[in-house]
Computed example of a mutant assay.
Amino acid sequence: MPPAQIRLEPWTDADLALLRRVNTPEMKKHVGGPETEEQLLHRHRRYLDFAPSGLGRMYRIVLLPEGEAVGTVGYGTRTWEGETVHEMGWNVLPGHQGRGIAAAAARAAVEAARREAAHRHLHAFPSVDNPASNAVCAKAGFSLLGRTDFEFPPGRFMVSNNWRVDLRS
């Protein structure tokens, strides 16, 4: 099967429905489980504010040629080890996993970050127990810096791999 063709489209208010579709026990098993409706609405507002505030970018992943929204990818700003960095995350709906969509979307988002991001480093912190997301990092050009204790969601620590891209190189 040839690699999936995708396009990234900026996050809009209409993407709340997509955010709800990825908020399932299966999709969120490596990050503490599904969020409450209140948490989901807060996340959606943050995503809408990323671009206007300059804190990051959020995208829906659109499968081509169908034009179907099949996931999310984006990055936001955080402090990590005393440095202001960007952190990337992604979700691909179960019926579309295993086709290279997440890796293609992560590569496209890294390239967008190279053009737009305010900070030098872009990190991803997938759980060490999530081989698929760790593979996406490798395929998207991130370098593995090692394991770390990572807090996500707030109040929940997990052992993660710390992957990084230097956006200036």
Rank of each mutant, 00 (worst) to 15 (best):
R7V: 13
E9S: 04
E9T: 05
P10A: 10
P10L: 14
W11G: 01
W11C: 00
W11A: 00
T12D: 13
L16D: 06
L16N: 11
A17Q: 07
A17C: 00
L18V: 03
L18F: 04
L18M: 10
L19K: 02
L19W: 08
R21D: 08
V22L: 06
T24C: 05
P25Y: 11
M27T: 03
H30S: 05
G32C: 03
G32H: 02
G33T: 13
G33F: 08
G33W: 09
T36A: 08
Q39K: 12
L41H: 12
L41N: 07
H42S: 10
H44F: 15
H44A: 04
R45P: 01
R45L: 06
R45F: 10
R45D: 05
R45S: 09
Y47D: 03
L48V: 08
L48G: 01
F50P: 00
F50W: 13
P52G: 06
G54H: 09
G54M: 11
R60W: 00
I61T: 01
I61M: 01
V62A: 10
L64M: 10
E66W: 00
E66K: 03
G67D: 05
E68K: 04
A69R: 05
G71N: 09
T72C: 14
G76W: 15
G76N: 14
R78H: 13
W80E: 14
E81R: 15
T84G: 02
T84K: 11
T84A: 08
H86T: 14
M88F: 07
W90K: 06
N91G: 07
V92R: 01
L93I: 01
G98P: 01
G98W: 03
G100E: 03
G100Y: 07
I101D: 04
A102S: 07
A103T: 15
A105F: 07
A109I: 07
A109M: 10
A109R: 12
E111W: 12
A112K: 11
